[in-house]
Simulated assay, not measured.
Amino acid sequence: MPLENITNIFENSPYNKHLGIKFEKLEEDSIGCYIKITTSLLNVNKAVHGGVFFSILDSVMGATIRTVVNQPIVTVNMSINYFAPLMNGEKMMATARILQQGNSIVTAEGLVNDSKGSVVAKSIGTFKIMRMNR
């Protein structure tokens, strides 16, 4: 599947559109995306809600895996560590890489960086390849 198709799939997901996720770096096994933080993404502490971090990491890891396996995937498990908050007006940037790929399970790592390049969150996710052409 061409990388542009993967971008279209993920950017046109209703949930990703709602969050404002945009994809910019497109290479096989290497995807980058970002969200410009607005007040609608903030929690009661006026920092980005943890679910936004989780969502962008899930999306960037999934898109990265899709560039390699060329099949739909689903998230099986994901853990996240938060290191620093992001505030309104900042840019949240996410990247991912594949750590291990088996026949039906893929493990990936995702990072969220702030606009200065500091890592503000990290995740590891396990994804199942949905074999649609059987």
Rank of each mutant, 00 (worst) to 15 (best):
L3C: 00
N5H: 10
N5K: 15
N8L: 14
F10I: 00
F10P: 13
E11V: 12
E11L: 08
N12T: 01
Y15D: 02
Y15S: 03
K17Q: 13
K22I: 11
K25D: 08
E27S: 14
E28M: 08
D29G: 10
S30C: 12
S30I: 05
I31H: 01
C33D: 02
Y34H: 15
Y34C: 13
T39K: 15
S40V: 10
V44A: 15
K46N: 13
K46C: 02
A47N: 09
A47V: 15
H49G: 08
H49E: 06
H49S: 08
F53I: 04
F54W: 10
I56A: 04
V60L: 00
V60M: 00
T64H: 03
I65H: 09
R66I: 07
T67S: 05
V68T: 13
N70W: 00
Q71L: 01
V76W: 06
N77V: 04
M78Q: 11
S79C: 09
S79R: 14
I80K: 04
I80R: 03
A84I: 07
P85D: 03
L86G: 02
G89R: 04
G89H: 05
E90G: 01
K91D: 11
A94F: 01
I98G: 09
Q101E: 14
N103F: 05
N103E: 14
I105V: 12
V106D: 14
A108E: 10
A108K: 08
E109V: 02
E109N: 07
L111W: 11
V112F: 04
V112D: 02
N113G: 01
N113F: 08
D114K: 06
S115E: 13
K116C: 08
K116Y: 10
G117K: 06
S118C: 09
V120R: 01
A121G: 05
K122L: 06
S123K: 08
S123G: 09
S123M: 09
I124V: 12
I124F: 12
F127S: 07
F127R: 07
K128Y: 11
R131L: 12
R134C: 05
